[in-house]
């Protein structure tokens, strides 16, 4: 991490272990999200990225380890209390409320808040980021296109005015143009509001271009972490995530490489 940036840590995971039933999905993960930064968590299918986010937001309880959000331990806290502390989660696959209107979906994002004026202000700000949502304000969310639903899911999380935003695969199933549009907004939210963001992505290219710092996850472990600039130029990342080299006998290569990382 750049030594020049004051490491004011918003989120800190120490040795987190999580299980799906009897299966250990997360095998001792430690990571940090500094204030005002975008941190990305990369990894292939089944690496455990979504599980990490679910563990942070309290949908899953970690078996071991500690999670600190703004200096406060939040492991094993109820999910709705964690949201109230200012941590919002945009889940994988958008998960909008299909029969609620766009406006009602956004209002649900502000459910923990009681300041009506602030909420009205934020709803306008979300419409500013995503003008298309404003056009569809009274439509049921289920009728929106995939891209619009992703915008709604992000806008809905912003309505909580979170300190930290967890984003799970915002590029999933979207056209390249929409991916670009959504990541531009993510960067804007980070720059304009100083919001810290933890971004999980399979699209390593766009994630590395957007984020400041990155972690690489493989089968429940962090195998690499560095600034995104350096990750982008690392040989392994280029080979395995950016497709710079044909895969070849990739299975063997991958296991060999991993040993040197540990």
């Amino acid at each position: 991490m750049d030594a020049a940036v004051t490491p004011d840590i918003i989120l800190k995971l120490s040795n987190i272990e999580s299980y799906y039933g009897p299966i250990m999905a997360i095998r001792g993960i430690s990571l940090e999200v500094p204030r005002g930064r975008i941190v990305t968590l990369l990894g292939a299918n089944g690496a455990g990225k979504t599980t990490v986010l679910k563990t942070i937001s309290g949908i899953l309880d970690p078996q071991k380890g500690a999670i600190e959000f703004m200096g406060r331990p939040i492991q094993r806290m109820e999910a709705d209390r964690i949201v109230r502390l200012g941590l919002s989660h945009v889940p994988e696959g958008r998960e909008v409320f299909p029969f609620l209107s766009v406006r009602e979906n956004l209002m649900m994002g502000a459910y923990p808040r009681r300041d009506r004026d602030g909420v009205a202000e934020d709803i306008e700000r979300v419409y500013g980021y995503f003008p298309r949502l404003k056009e569809r304000i009274n439509q049921p969310a289920g009728q929106l296109s995939g891209g619009e639903q992703q915008m709604l899911a992000i806008g809905r999380a912003l309505m909580n005015r979170p300190t930290l935003l967890l984003l799970d695969e915002p590029s999933l199933g979207l056209s390249p143009i929409l991916v670009k549009e959504i990541f531009t907004i993510i960067r804007r939210v980070n720059e304009e509001q100083g919001m810290s963001i933890l971004l999980v992505e399979q699209n390593a290219k766009v994630a590395l271009e957007t984020a400041h710092y990155g972690y690489v996850l493989e089968i429940g472990r962090i195998v690499m972490n560095d600034s995104c600039d350096r990750l982008m130029h690392s040989q392994d990342i280029q080979e395995f995530y950016l497709g710079a080299k044909e895969a070849g006998a990739r299975g063997e290569r991958r296991w060999k490489k991993k040993k040197t990382w540990r």
């Binding site: 309290g58 709705d80 945009v90 923990p112």
Partner: peptide, 15 residues
Amino acid sequence: RASSENMLAAYYMGI
């Protein structure tokens, strides 16, 4: 209504 449509998402909203 939100919780009945998507309970997991309702948790994510802090409901």
